[in-house]
């Protein structure tokens, strides 16, 4: 196997919520001991619901939030602790597209400056040379030179996301982090963007870290999937295996909860409806974070977080159901 492009080990991000006079400072473990690799040109999707820490993971990889533990290696270089100028120098390899195309473009700048900004700040191109490159980038994402002198105001959500993508690929990054990049778009526009991303991957060989809550989209675009719950990866593996044979009860419930757009299938399928809500990340339950809602909960789940067990078909799951030692003892509670 080729060396991974991105290698994340035991990553943790803790936010300190400052307390007041009568409230103590609270610690929010948004990401808690997460490890994954992305090979060059590969798409890893991180799926999860709110509070799963998937966006924080993306921001930590982007070095937009400080990791509190663990390491991040990009292209063999340790970027975990880079700051200032050295961090700026690795930025061209690592770019990001944000969820909300309405707030990710500076409203006071024209499109030529928005897309050309990475070229300018890294001293890649200036003046007419820069404009020429911007034009080529816009054409690459399906826009034209006549869009260059307009303001973000004048574009629809889908067009803005194209602009954001043009900006992100301007420096020819090796890894593009897409944080819910199509979630704010309507279905018809969303697919245009997904197709564009597919084209860019083929043409430029970019690897994607694709953060999403939409499993339908993930199934289509990802090579591998990591399922997150309350700051941890509970299951990881090749897309086909995850969707065909989910190993973790949470993955299973998540897949079953997504309504299939076909009434005959949707109304006849077996569904797992999980009770309750995701616990607050401020007070995560001990042991396996999913044990409060898990239909297969055992006593051991409530005390010790299970380790990742390799699964047939690739990948791994962190669940005692697949850990031979835990199930042998017959410790099922129910």
């Amino acid at each position: 196997m080729t060396a991974p492009l991105l290698s994340v080990r035991d990553l943790a991000v803790t936010f300190h919520l400052r307390g007041g006079l009568l409230r103590p400072t609270r610690h929010l473990k948004a990401v808690n001991g997460v490890s994954f690799d992305i090979a060059p040109g590969e798409t890893l999707a991180v799926v999860g619901e709110s509070g799963s820490g998937k966006s924080t993971m993306a921001r930590a990889v982007m070095r937009l939030v400080e990791p509190s533990a663990g390491s991040i290696h990009l292209d063999g270089d340790d970027i975990t602790a880079l700051r200032g100028e050295p961090l700026r120098r690795i930025r061209p390899k690592l770019q990001m597209v944000f969820q909300d195309p309405y707030s990710s473009l500076d409203p006071s700048m024209i499109i030529a400056d928005v897309v050309g900004e990475p070229l300018t700040v890294h001293g890649v191109a200036t003046g007419a040379d820069r404009d020429e490159r911007v034009q080529a980038l816009l054409e690459q994402v399906g826009l034209g030179r006549y869009h260059m002198n307009r303001y973000p105001y004048e574009f629809s959500g889908g067009q803005r996301q194209r602009i954001a993508i043009a900006r992100a690929i301007a420096l020819q990054p090796k890894l593009l982090v897409l944080d819910e990049a199509v979630s704010a778009l309507d279905v018809s526009t969303q697919n245009q963007i997904l197709n564009l991303l597919e084209d860019l991957r083929r043409e430029l060989g970019i690897a994607y870290l694709f953060i999403s809550h939409d499993l339908g989209v993930v199934e289509h675009i990802a090579d591998r999937v990591a399922v997150t719950y309350l700051g941890r990866i509970v299951e990881e593996g090749p897309t086909e295996r995850i969707f065909a044979k989910p190993a973790h009860p949470y993955t299973e419930a998540l897949l079953s909860a997504v309504p299939i757009p076909n009434p005959r299938i949707q109304r006849s399928r077996q569904r797992i409806v999980l009770p309750g809500d995701v616990p607050s990340p401020l007070a995560p339950p001990p042991g396996c974070p999913f044990h409060t809602r898990c239909p297969h909960v055992m006593d051991v789940c409530k005390t010790v977080m299970p380790a990742h067990t390799p699964m047939a078909g690739g990948g791994s799951a962190a669940c005692y159901l697949h850990d031979p030692q835990a199930t042998e003892g017959g410790r099922r509670a129910s």
């Binding site: 697919n191 245009q192 597919e198 199934e219 289509h220 757009p261």
Partner: peptide, 24 residues
């Protein structure tokens, strides 16, 4: 038809997703 075809669940992996061209 366009909306139904655009559901990503229904598109095969690797194939292009059906998209309605343009914007409303």
């Amino acid at each position: 038809e366009g909306l139904l075809q655009a559901m990503p669940q229904l598109g095969e992996r690797g194939k292009r997703l059906a998209a309605i061209p343009g914007t409303p």
